[in-house]
Design a protein around this nucleic acid. Structure first.
Ligand SMILES: [Zn+2]
Ligand SMILES: [Zn+2]
Ligand SMILES: [Zn+2]
Ligand SMILES: [Zn+2]
Lengths: 159, 159
DNA sequence: CTTGACCTTGGATTTAACTCCAAGGTTTAT
DNA sequence: ATAAACCTTGGAGTTAAATCCAAGGTCAAG
């Protein structure tokens, strides 16, 4: 039997996290000591590891609660149910990735358009792109010219 | 001059969002009507569009606040400052993408290992992977066998 | 017998970006 | 003149997953 701090250290989480999981129905210690201390069994520890593995592949605690209820009653669930949870999560993750990829492309385009030099930002391509109503930065407009032609890592590259 | 609802509709946000932006120092109407209604000028609208464009490339409101302060005082900032913000955001986005890619790969592997059929989940590869202490699912262990050999879209594929 | 490490509980706080509500004032159209 | 549609304010609620706090009980060592 582990006390809360022992299990926490063992699984590299905080004791607070274990109390949080208990409050939310994910993991309760199988017993208490006479003085009221939580006592976790080896199977409680296994359950915690299950939770942490599910977290590590991206499931939320709400989703893990579902997984756990299947896990405890496997024979009344089908592979289709389990795979459904995984595939639905996969779809969410793919959607999020796609949003972030969009950010990534836009930011990269902004970054590439700016010389990044020490000159005044008065004609910075990034700011101009955010000011303008164009969706994407247009390198063709040669908007970014500094007084000195010394810093040329900007739109002119493509001209 | 736009009233709050007009500007909101024009820019496809809610009036509440504009009040929220005002409370957080991102966008204040340049004037008020006699009866206290917010009145937004065309340049207020431009500022809002700047905010929305920055949001569209992934900046948080806190970061947009920084961008706006640069935007209003361009000559006292360098391209390097602006590009720094973009590059730092880019790094965050890349990190998040990489985390999600890890989720994606793991979930895909779990999904591929499960037959997804109507049989009992008692021997579901997904659950077994989450129970076991192996980091990744191992298809070599042929853990997933159903009574009927009718549903074979699982580990046996690779055998 | 006292210090320090550990444990208990309940409740408050954090982050981000809204979103909603109540109670009331204003404008506009019929 | 009255109803609908709009606006005001302050403040509360939402989501997720913890994290922190205070006041106090327990346990082992010295
Ligand atoms: Zn520059
Ligand atoms: Zn620049
Ligand atoms: Zn199966
Ligand atoms: Zn399965």
């Amino acid at each position: 039997m582990y006390r809360i701090g022992e299990l926490a250290k063992l699984c590299e989480v905080k004791a607070d996290t274990l109390r949080f999981y208990e409050k939310h129905g994910l993991l309760a210690p199988s017993s208490r000591s006479d003085s009221g201390y939580r006592l976790y069994s080896e199977s409680d520890a296994e359950r915690l590891r299950f939770i942490l593995r599910a977290k590590a592949v991206g499931f939320t605690l709400a989703e893990i609660t579902e997984l756990l209820s299947i896990e405890l009653d496997k024979s009344n669930w089908a592979c289709a149910d389990v795979k459904g949870l995984v595939d639905s999560k996969l779809a969410q993750v793919n959607e999020k990735i796609s949003e972030l990829n969009h950010f990534q492309v836009s930011l990269q385009r902004l970054s590439d358009a700016c010389c990044g030099g020490p000159e005044s930002a008065e004609h910075c391509s990034i700011l101009e792109a955010l000011e303008s109503n164009t969706d994407n930065i247009k390198c063709e407009n040669h908007a970014h010219h500094h007084d000195k032609s010394q810093y040329t890592k900007n739109c002119q590259n493509k001209g």
